[in-house]
Structures are given as C-alpha cells and as structure tokens.
Simulated scan of single mutants.
Amino acid sequence: MQNIAVVTGASSGIGAATARRLATEGFHVVAVARRADRLAALVDEIGAKSATAVEGDVTSDESVAALAAAVTALGGPVTLLVNNAGGAQGLDPVESGSVADWQWMYDVNVLGTLRVTQALLPALVASGAGTIVTVGSTAAFTVYEGGGGYTAAKHAQNALVGTLRLELSGKPVRVIEVDPGMVRTDEFSLKRFGGDQARADAIYQGVKEPLVADDIADIIAYAATRPQHVNLDRIVVRPIAQAAQHKVHRES
C-alpha cells in the first residue's frame, strides 16, 4: 500500500490542487470535504488507485471520528496530513462584526485543525515518518481593518501549530505551516462576501498575477517530500505584486 496523505477541504481550490499534486508524488490521497459530488469527480480525475473520497465535516466530532476510521481501514501507513479546510466570512469591523461569522471561522480554522490532528496523530506517529502541513495565511501574523474575525482565527491556528511542534519534539512527526498571501481561487473571496461576485473580483482587480491554488499545492508538496530530518517550520508565500498585507501593486 502507498503512503497515505489526508487532505481536508479537498473539494476545491488549494485542497483539490494539493490532492492532485500529491497523487503525482506517489501518495494515496484521502480527499476530505463536505461536498461528496465534487470529491467523486476529483477521485475520478486522479484515479481510484491513487485517491479515496471521504465525505466529512471538520466541525463535527462524529464526522472526524468516521474519517479516522476510514483512513485506518485503508491499511497503509499514514505519513501526511494536510490541514487545509478553512475560510473567511465577512469583512466587517469589530464593532459590528457578526458573532456567528466569528464563531464559524474559529470552528473551521482552529477547532477543525485540532479535531483532525488529534484524530490522525496516533497513525502519523506510528508511521515513523509523519508530517503535518497546516495551511494558514499571512493573516496569521498581520491584522487588517475588517479582518478581525479571520485574523483572530488564523493567529489562533498559528498558536496551535507552534505549540504542537514543541509538544511533538522527539517524536517522528514534522509540523509545517504554509502561510499564503493573495491567492485567487474560485471560492474563497466569493464565500467571504456571501456570493457577491463583484466584491470578490474587486479583491484581485489590477493585480497582474495573484497566486493560484497550484502554486500553494507545489509548495506543500515540496515541504512534504523533503528528507524526514528537514522541517520547514513556516513558509510565507505571496505574489510578487504583494509586498505586504497593505502593499499591493495594481495596474490600471
């Protein structure tokens, strides 16, 4: 059996791109997301010998337990977990931000990462050569107006990852964080703005070449395929047009 890589949030964007890329690197990819139809299409594309779809919700304890059982049933060594499921909702100031939006962002980005990591960590340790890659954001270390809920969640996720790395010292599991800046995907900004396509498009207006999902998948695959003694603790990646969170070159 091939080494198993579990990728959450695999139905679109960075997660789907990562699943495709890891399959080319020789992993059997367990693609996890809530949308079963999209997962089925992804597995058909990759090929059943190299991928398995598991419908799952990282905000549900029961769903994550079922994921762990499904992964165990495959029988191969679990050597890679990519915590990719996450997202943002809203761009409101703190004084009027939706508590429900904040709660959703914390549950998906932070507690979702916690649930899946806890569920699969025994298998990653047992493999003797495990790797956990968590997809964060430049929002994990930089705040911006209107981004309080998302930046709070990503800061918390970063704290989780850093603490885990300390706690796993001496065990055969690497802990890696990939923090992208401006990445244009089909759904991230659209979901953030409740389906408002014009607002979503405005985020990238004039930016010649924002990052795309394949760029992040390439970095995840690179980090995960280094020799096991090499741990890339934190990788920050932005498009050349984005010098910082508030410094983006836009062409007229």
Rank of each mutant, 00 (worst) to 15 (best):
A41K: 09
G76D: 08
D57S: 12
K247S: 14
V178P: 01
L160P: 01
A36H: 11
K171H: 05
A126M: 02
I216E: 02
T113I: 03
L124E: 01
M105W: 03
V237F: 02
Q197C: 01
Y204V: 05
E187I: 11
I235Y: 03
G136I: 00
K49I: 04
Q118K: 01
T134D: 02
I240S: 14
L42G: 07
A23G: 14
V178D: 00
T131W: 05
D61V: 15
Q118F: 01
V78Q: 00
V58N: 02
I220F: 04
A100N: 10
V212M: 05
V58T: 09
D57K: 10
T185G: 02
Q89K: 14
S98H: 08
P227G: 09
V71D: 10
A153N: 12
S96R: 07
L74Y: 09
T72E: 15
Q228S: 12
M182P: 06
A153L: 13
W102F: 15
G13E: 02
L120A: 03
A123S: 12
V125N: 00
A65S: 12
G206D: 10
A129C: 03
H155C: 07
V82W: 06
V125T: 07
S252R: 12
A66N: 10
A10T: 02
M1R: 08
R115H: 03
L190Y: 08
A17P: 04
D214E: 15
N231T: 15
A152P: 01
A139Y: 04
Q228R: 12
V236R: 13
S98D: 08
K191I: 10
D92W: 04
D101Y: 06
R34L: 12
K208F: 06
A223S: 11
D44Y: 05
M182Y: 07
E167S: 05
V110E: 04
A243V: 14
L74T: 14
V178E: 02
R199K: 15
I46T: 07
T72Y: 07
A73Q: 12
G97R: 06
G87C: 01
V82T: 11
V135Y: 02
G9C: 02
S63N: 07
N109S: 11
I46P: 09
L22W: 08
L74R: 13
G206K: 08
D92M: 12
E145D: 13
L190E: 06
A152S: 15
P180Q: 07
D218V: 04
E167T: 06
G148Q: 13
D196Y: 10
N231W: 15
F27T: 00
G15D: 01
D196L: 07
S12T: 10
G194C: 12
T24A: 14
I132R: 06
R21Q: 14
P239I: 04
I219V: 15
D186A: 13
H229Q: 13
D37M: 04
D215E: 06
K154V: 06
G90P: 05
L67R: 00
V30H: 00
L166T: 11
S50V: 05
L164K: 04
E25L: 08
E251R: 11
A17S: 13
K171F: 01
R199N: 06
V135L: 14
A41H: 09
V212N: 08
L81M: 11
K154S: 08
G15S: 00
P122M: 09
V183G: 09
K208V: 14
V116E: 04
G112C: 09
